[in-house]
Computed example of a mutant assay.
Amino acid sequence: MGYQRKTALTQKHIKNSLITLLDIHKFDLITVNQIVEEAEITRSTFYRYYEDKYSLLSEIEEEILNQLHEARQKINQQFTEEDMFTVEVFQQLFESLESYSEAIRVLLGHNGDTSFEMKIKNEIAKRFVNLGELHHVSKVREDLVKEYLYVILIKTFQYWSANKESIDVREVAATIRDIQLKGLRKAIGI
């Protein structure tokens, strides 16, 4: 059991090192040497766990996407279709991603992986696969509503992860809910 724990800690340290470097440098400019220096490990230790920096980045992104998927499944089990736009749903989503907030901030930031946003979009899309069939919505309206939801959720992830120490997640959740249910004008009190 001690070896597994040490392995997990080493991998976490390597992942955190890449996130630290991504906060300063573009991914393409980061080298394995920089990662091992930041992690204070040897190259052989790095290669024991990862084929290259791309596999490391992929593993970080997959962990976040798996957490998002699990949160979505839990929400689907807990809430009815009619309750999907409640403050509690959005709050639970953000709370489930709390431990990944720094990685989300960096990965969705200017130095992050541009494909990560698309991966999040694809995970969110799973929730809305049959929207048109369920509610007899036109293809244009279905597509535009999905795009709106993707953009607002991804931009909200960026805002939340960059400001989470100084904001109330419940207020963020309530704002998303109000925009989606009441519209922009009413959400800001006009």
Rank of each mutant, 00 (worst) to 15 (best):
V32D: 03
S58V: 09
H136M: 10
A162W: 01
N66F: 09
F27K: 03
T20G: 10
I190N: 10
E133G: 14
A187I: 06
E82F: 11
G109W: 01
A173P: 09
Q67T: 15
L29K: 12
S58K: 14
Y47E: 04
G183M: 09
L68V: 14
W160N: 11
Q34S: 03
S44Q: 14
L56P: 02
K146A: 08
N76D: 15
F27Y: 05
M84K: 14
I64L: 08
A162M: 06
E95I: 12
L131W: 00
A173E: 13
I188P: 06
A174F: 15
N111G: 02
M1V: 11
E98F: 09
A8F: 10
E63K: 13
E82V: 12
L65D: 00
I14H: 06
E82M: 10
S55Q: 14
K164V: 02
F46T: 11
K139L: 12
V145W: 08
V89G: 05
E59R: 15
I152M: 11
I19T: 08
I14K: 01
K146R: 12
Y50N: 11
E38F: 02
I75E: 12
A174Y: 14
E147I: 04
V169G: 04
S58C: 04
M84N: 09
L21I: 03
I124F: 07
A125P: 03
S101V: 03
L134R: 14
R141S: 05
E165D: 05
S115A: 09
L18Y: 01
Y54F: 11
S55V: 06
K12N: 11
G112L: 00
